[in-house]
């Protein structure tokens, strides 16, 4: 799937972690494409490898983590082949990242304005007065009305939502072509979360940047993404566009996730459907499909051999890692719109 017009093309990326008990695989042959102007959501439960994927793309994997194989092509360049010095030119300017805890990600000892200015000075070689002007513009752009006051504030004087807006302002300050958002709204209140999502969507549309949106909450995905990758136990199990996700998921895991959302369930007092069992522990070796132990559709074959991520049907852009994809077998729609 080496796509030439892709902004980011990750090919067969695998990351191992080496511990006292031996090495174990954190993510296994992860492939993903992000086009300019597209938002790709990576959804998975804790431990599914979604954050490791984003760190690997940014080249931030440290010991005991090791990138075993794979390529990260950004604008036709393999980021993993670059030296850390060369890579630094792109990171923070062309590829930027926002994190879950905005209050922790900002340096508590400097004002918000100083921190934004530093980014501008470092990457765009702006002069001081220019920096200040641009920083104020950026704060305005992320919807902070009293930008001058915010400019002079320290992170602890701002609310969580406000700090996340500051983080976003810093992330978009150099007009990046790719923004990686790792659970950016998880620590925020619901009303603030809705605002932040709307802001991200708006900025992405206006700047035409590509975005990777990492989340554990499948219900956020339709609000922001064009395409979704579902991860389970270090593997991508489904890759499909957002319009078809809710009408007919192909992988049993995706279906189970959708069904367990309280928001997609409106009969009061009725039990939610759950996924039995627990995800495999880090380091546990699994033969066959990683999900077979918890899958209600599992058959003999699933225990013996591992399925590949392939197109479910000929001429279908959807990819699924399952021998017996759901909608391909029966036409019954599993999830609810």
């Amino acid at each position: 799937m080496a796509n030439r017009d892709c902004l980011l093309a990750v090919e067969c990326l695998s990351v191992d972690f080496e511990t006292r008990r031996g090495s174990h695989t954190a993510i296994e042959s992860v492939c993903l494409d992000v086009h300019a102007g597209e938002t790709v959501a990576i959804v998975g439960e804790s431990g599914s490898g979604k954050s490791v994927t984003s760190l690997a793309i940014m080249g931030l994997i440290r010991k005991p983590g090791v990138i075993r194989s794979g390529k990260v092509n950004f604008n036709g360049m393999d980021l993993l082949a670059l030296s850390s010095c060369q890579r630094r030119q792109y990171l923070g300017r062309d590829i930027t990242m926002i994190f879950q805890e905005p209050t922790v990600s900002l340096n508590p000892s400097f004002t918000v304005g100083y921190q934004i200015s530093e980014v501008l000075k470092l990457h765009l070689k702006m002069k001081r007065t220019e920096c200040r002007k641009r920083a104020l513009e950026l704060l305005h752009e992320v919807g902070i009305s009293d930008s001058l006051r915010c400019f002079k504030s320290y992170p602890h004087q701002l609310s969580g939502g406000m700090n996340q807006r500051v983080m976003i302002a810093m992330a978009i300050s150099c007009k990046p072509s790719l923004l990686i958002a790792d659970e950016p709204t998880t620590a925020l209140d619901v009303t603030v979360q809705a605002q932040t999502l709307a802001l991200l969507r708006q900025l992405q549309k206006n700047n035409g940047m590509g975005m990777i949106f990492i989340t554990h909450d499948l219900s956020l995905v339709p609000d922001i993404a064009h395409r979704v990758l579902v991860m389970y136990a270090g593997q991508i199990v489904e890759n499909c566009s957002i319009d078809v996700l809710f009408t007919g998921p192909l992988h049993p895991y995706t279906e189970a996730l959708l069904k367990s959302l309280p928001a997609h369930h409106d009969k009061q007092g009725e039990r939610l459907s759950t996924i039995t069992g627990t995800p495999p522990r880090a380091g546990e070796t699994i033969t066959g499909c990683h999900f077979h132990g918890r899958c209600s559709y599992a058959r003999e074959r699933c225990k013996e051999s591992a399925p590949k991520l392939i197109a479910a049907l000929p001429d279908d852009p959807r990819l699924v890692r399952c021998f017996y994809p759901l909608a391909a077998n029966s036409k019954t729609s599993a999830g609810r719109p």
Partner: peptide, 11 residues
């Protein structure tokens, strides 16, 4: 319910 997987490999 969710205790299907035992933790044998964990001492």
């Amino acid at each position: 319910m969710s205790n299907a997987t035992s933790v044998e490999d964990v001492d």
